[in-house]
């Protein structure tokens, strides 16, 4: 990797100041950034290590929501009694991210802010209708993920927490890429009162909502309801591991499995 300065602020305010440098990069678990640095694909002037900021840690229930600090590692979400009781599908999803080492380092804030098309978390954020807390404001999930590796976060804005409303039912299913084990197609479904949200990751350049499935499930919450819905392959990813058509097919399969898992 190239040389860079290293900072470890202890408050969000200090971190924001350090990130005023447009070539500085925030790092949390480092599971995306460090490999990129090692491959010299990224040349930041400074790394702003967020891991010392106490106000960005912890899982708590606030009213009818679970608020998870950005620094919370995937393994903590997976093993949290609070999350398991309130939104078991979220704990399940976290328990299947990457492998053990990834789950013990990677953080929810890092994953959501990075918006890797093949990451798991964006599906849960969108399907559960979460709210992103930042150093400046609160952003609705639907307004947050803008495109591949692109979010509504501004350069000096830090994601501090994710607030997940507790829903009636939710489920997640995914097919892993055989080589990287990232998501090739993952579907998160959630039902809250009369509202159903279906979010898809892995298949396209960015997480997206499957409106047709949402409509079908709103009137009939069952795997059969989505069986006939064909995901359009147009705009989906294709690579040496599978065509866009294959991914479109998997979206249907994973949606059914997610609904069954949600119960």
């Amino acid at each position: 990797m190239y040389d860079f300065a290293y900072h470890k602020p202890t408050s969000v305010a200090d971190a924001v100041k350090l990130l005023a440098d447009p070539d500085a990069k925030a790092v949390s678990g480092g599971h995306t950034l460090l490999p990129a640095l090692k491959h010299r694909l990224n040349k930041p002037t400074a790394l702003v290590d967020l891991s010392g900021i106490a106000e960005m840690t912890g899982i708590k229930r606030v009213g009818n929501a679970i608020v998870i600090g950005a620094l919370t590692r995937h393994a903590e979400v997976a093993n949290s009694a609070e999350v398991k009781a309130a939104i078991p599908a979220l704990a399940y999803m976290a328990s299947h991210i990457g492998d053990l080492q990834v789950r013990n380092r990677g953080t929810i804030g890092g994953s959501v802010a990075n918006n890797d098309p093949a990451a798991d978390y964006p599906s849960a954020v969108v399907a559960l209708g979460a709210t992103i807390h930042t150093s400046k404001r609160k952003i609705a999930a639907d307004d947050f993920f803008l495109g591949m590796f692109t979010t509504a976060l501004e350069a000096d804005e830090i994601l501090t927490a994710v607030e997940f409303p507790i829903v009636d039912k939710a489920g997640y299913a995914k097919m892993r890429n055989p080589a990287s084990r990232y998501v090739m197609a993952g579907v998160f479904v959630a039902k809250a009162g009369g509202t159903v949200r279906v979010a898809v990751v892995g298949a396209a350049p960015c997480v997206f909502r499957q409106a047709e499935m949402e409509a079908a499930l709103t009137s009939n919450w069952s795997a059969d309801a989505v069986a006939g819905i064909k995901q359009d392959a147009d705009g989906l990813n294709g690579d040496i591991h599978g065509s866009a058509e294959y991914r479109a097919h998997l979206v249907g399969v994973m949606a059914k499995r997610a609904i069954v898992a949600a119960g």
């Binding site: 055989p178 080589a179 990287s180 990232y182 690579d239 040496i240 591991h241």
Partner: peptide, 23 residues
């Protein structure tokens, strides 16, 4: 079941890391 080396028509190695070469 898993492994294969893939070059594109220009001779670029598409399966050039563990991300794409299935060990």
């Amino acid at each position: 079941l898993l492994e294969t080396c893939v070059y594109d028509a220009d001779g670029q190695l598409l399966s050039g890391s563990m991300m794409d070469y299935t060990m």
